[in-house]
Design a protein around this nucleic acid. Structure first.
Length: 285
DNA sequence: AAGAGGCCCTGATAGC
DNA sequence: TGCTATCAGGGCCTCT
């Protein structure tokens, strides 16, 4: 699912639903996530209290006192909080069973006081890692600033682009350069900037760089306001969709009319570094 | 150091 | 209906 806005939505709902809860029991049904869930995972987490929930780019962090649990949702991970008292509540979608949960791929489950925290991930590209609190900074040492951080400023971007040969689309997806943007938002950001995704970064002007900084932040904040984007898998912890997908200007709009006023162009699709890229080759010169 | 490519995995969809 | 191929919101690893 997960780009920064979607993870932020999850973080906000976890804040409301599981903050200060004690993990009374841990069940791991499938240890083969991106990183193997260790044998002692359950015993380490048992009886820990979720003191704080935070987010760093596309990662969620459960702060559990002297340790923390870093969670990444990969491509298809979702977190569901189900209320034990309402567990008989009926759901009307075929995807969800009577517990308002997906029927398959519920790999990790935390039993809390009156609810359950369930991690579902069909493709298993996500992970749960336990770290000592003091190792958290080191874990993120190769992750660049978020578009929402002040460090993601004109100087930083200009310096980073010096002597680089790749195109701008690849850099927006490069988490060392800027973290939190994924394929959907990279497409949308470049469209609103009117910058061609294939443009080599060393040829970008200062104005281009200012636009990239400004619109990266704007698009992500807009998406957060809309509850994120739901393409296939993304749901918030209550199983509801976000709505930013209704505002997409280019993503999955191949062959459709460009939405910029006065532009008669059509949206094109191209693969850049094996990722589908959508753009108007009339506006995005 | 920077960049290209392979790979991890399941499921939805398209085409025959 | 059923097969096969392709693609999907990510990122790690290896090789050059």
């Amino acid at each position: 699912m997960p780009e920064l806005p979607e993870i932020e939505i999850v973080k906000q709902s976890l804040d409301k639903k599981v903050k200060f809860e004690k993990i009374k029991k841990v069940v791991v049904r499938n240890r083969s996530l991106r990183f193997k869930v260790p044998k002692n995972f359950e015993s380490i987490l048992k009886n820990k209290i979720i003191k704080k929930i935070s987010r760093k780019s596309k990662y969620l962090i459960l702060h559990l006192g002297n340790i923390c649990c870093v969670i990444h949702l990969g491509m298809s991970g979702t977190i569901h909080i189900i209320n034990s008292k309402n567990s008989n509540k009926h759901s009307n979608t075929s995807f969800y069973g009577s517990l308002n949960l997906p029927l398959k791929h519920n790999h990790i489950e935390f039993f809390l006081r009156n609810s359950q925290f369930v991690y579902n991930d069909p493709r298993r590209f996500g992970f749960f890692i336990i770290l000592k609190k003091e190792n958290l900074l080191n874990f993120f040492k190769n992750i660049g600033p978020e578009p929402l951080d002040n460090q993601f400023n004109i100087n930083y971007i200009e310096n980073y682009f010096k002597n680089k040969k790749k195109n701008i689309k690849s850099f927006l997806l490069d988490q060392k350069f800027v973290s939190g943007i994924g394929n959907i938002y990279a497409n949308e950001i470049l469209f609103i900037c009117k910058i061609n995704p294939l443009q080599k970064v060393k040829y970008l002007t200062k104005i281009d760089i200012k636009k990239i900084r400004y619109f990266s932040k704007l698009i992500l904040n807009r998406a957060i306001k809309k509850g994120g984007s739901s393409i296939k898998d993304f749901k918030n912890v209550e199983g509801q969709n976000g709505s930013y997908q209704n505002q997409f200007k280019v993503y999955k709009r191949e062959n459709l009319k460009c939405l910029n006023k006065g532009c008669t162009g059509k949206i094109k699709k191209k693969f850049i570094s094996k990722r589908s890229t959508f753009f108007c080759n009339n506006c995005q010169k």
